[in-house]
Write a protein that binds this DNA or RNA. Structure first.
Length: 497
DNA sequence: CTCTCAAAGCGGCTTAACCA
DNA sequence: TGGTTAAGCCGCTTTGAGAG
């Protein structure tokens, strides 16, 4: 295959045999992996059109699944993957294999680069339609897409980011259809007029996009809907991963997936939340919970991101944009979910100078004015200690349920730290523990003193060379946009060191 | 009190199967 | 035989129920 000679052109990716191929000028010339490599060889191409489709004559995955024992979830996921897909990519990279479009929804989102692709001329046929790229908020429908299955040649490899998300943020227009909750620099939003927190009242249209435009956009979620948690776990399905919510303006209860479960007490009865519609046809719930509104004593409130997977997406963006390692050479490739030793680490970054950094990300949803046990807090209150500034809380990790006080909150997290330290000790690689707090009311980060096993392990790892970083992220309410807020200092003692 | 199990959803990895 | 994909497995996340 003459990959380099392809130039700006129309790619047609189609399954002809059970293999997926690249059709160029109507002829199958390559398989998926070769397409990836072909695209990676075209850095000078300003724009290419990509059509992912499926030859219905071949035996589909759905048919295979129907005859297998595992017919449920995967069958649906693969059926989606087999649907016709149309997309265009600007300055294509190896990771720009596009996904999922159908004739009802012209919008396409590629999950890893989070770009939205729109069909400019909907009247066009699939083989000749003109397509344009728009860096704006993906639609809910677009999220249904999935990437093509990774090939053995380049599993999990994400190419260097094609362009800065900062540029994307600046280039955004006001075309987004969802209403926006604009907060101040702390991400605070004003309290509603009545005492009951009503997210709908907070979702006023934005009149000032300047602050958002100058910020570093890290991620954009699909359209979000306001709701209130009624039961968790759900009364209908007794899984801790599901809750009953009441969507704004809807009387009946709706089943919602809560991937972070109770999120240390944040997602509880009465909580105001933002949810997206589930895109899985096999999911038991129709919606997925993303943010919870945390009220402050002074009447303001903050959106707190609770979705643990989003923390990884945010971490990826921070890594790719050079915010985590500003003094190191840029990251060339970023592999996700890489198994090393007995653990699987979130990212392995290869820098331009050939050095390698192993990164483990932790979502830090919890923040408080005080890090300690309930007993210690009661003692402080009894001593009439003045409450600290509500907007200078500490992001605290970990904070979770445990059976025994002597147990670590998260044995896995402890294992990860110890293995990161081992990686540094072996030499040849850098290791980093990256904490992501999806809230803006925090001024610093601590590893909780209520889990001394983990705290000691992290501190020891840091002393032995593991890079410890913490960032806070500002969520723009219902617009679903996440911006870098600040890097948080990691505090170990009362002197702030 | 302690331990085990299960719950939903996502996505990477391994192995088997298939095709040119 | 080499290349590629499908199928299945597993890790990850937190909490509550039930058994011993």
């Amino acid at each position: 295959m003459r990959a380099v000679a392809l130039g700006p052109c129309v790619f047609l990716l189609a399954t002809t045999t059970p293999s997926i191929g690249l059709i160029f000028s109507g002829r199958v010339v390559a398989s998926t992996a070769r397409v990836r490599r072909a695209i990676s060889c075209m850095p000078a191409t300003p724009k290419a059109r990509v059509l992912l489709t499926c030859d219905r004559t071949c035996r589909s995955n759905a048919e295979r699944d129907a005859s297998s024992s595992e017919a449920g979830n995967r069958q649906s996921r693969r059926r989606k993957r087999d649907e016709v897909k149309i997309a265009t990519v600007t300055a294509p990279t190896a990771s720009d294999l596009f996904i999922c479009n159908d004739d009802k929804s012209p919008a396409v989102t590629y999950r890893k680069t989070r770009r939205k692709v729109e069909v400019a001329d909907q009247a066009s046929t699939s083989s000749s339609c003109a397509l344009t790229v728009a860096a704006s908020q993906p639609t809910r429908k677009a999220k249904t897409g999935r990437t093509q299955a990774p090939t053995t040649s380049d599993k999990g490899v994400i190419s260097k980011s094609a362009r800065s998300r900062r540029e994307v943020a600046i280039g955004e227009t006001s075309s987004a259809t969802t209403e926006v909750v604009e907060g101040d620099d702390h991400g605070r939003v004003p309290a509603p007029p009545d005492s009951a927190l009503n997210a709908t009242s907070l979702m006023r249209a934005s009149t000032d996009t300047a602050s958002a435009a100058s910020a570093v956009l890290l991620h954009t979620l699909p359209k979000l809907f306001s709701a209130t948690v009624v039961h968790r776990p759900s009364k209908e399905v007794k899984s801790p991963y599901l809750c009953d919510i009441r969507l704004a303006g809807v009387e009946t209860l709706t089943l919602c997936h809560t991937p972070s479960l109770g999120c240390s007490g944040l997602v509880t009865t009465g909580a105001t939340v933002l949810v997206s519609q589930s895109t899985s046809s096999t999911a038991k719930s129709s919606h997925v919970l993303h943010h919870v509104l945390q009220a402050e004593a002074d009447g303001t409130s903050h959106w707190v991101g609770t979705h643990p997977m989003t923390a990884n997406v945010l971490a990826q963006a921070l890594l790719e944009e050079g915010h985590v390692f500003p003094s190191l050479s840029r990251i060339e490739t970023l592999r996700k979910e890489v198994t090393m030793g007995n653990s699987r680490f979130d990212f392995v970054a290869t820098h331009a100078d050939g050095s390698v950094t192993v990164v483990e990300t932790k979502n830090v949803p919890v923040a408080d004015n005080f890090d300690g046990t309930k007993k210690e807090r009661a003692a402080l209150l009894a001593a009439c200690i003045t409450p600290p500034d509500a907007y200078h809380k500490i992001a605290i990790f970990p904070d979770g349920y445990r059976k025994k006080v002597s147990d670590p909150v998260s044995p896995r997290a402890l294992k990860h730290v110890q293995e990161l330290e081992a990686i540094v000790r072996e030499g040849g690689k850098r290791a980093c523990l990256l904490f992501i707090s999806q809230r803006t009311d925090v001024a610093s980060f601590v590893v909780t003193s209520t889990d001394m096993q983990y705290r000691t392990a992290v501190r020891k790892a840091g002393e032995n060379g593991v890079v410890l970083k913490a960032f806070s992220v500002r969520w723009d309410g219902a617009s679903g946009r996440a911006f870098l807020h600040r890097e948080l200092p990691i505090v170990w003692d009362a002197e702030g060191k």
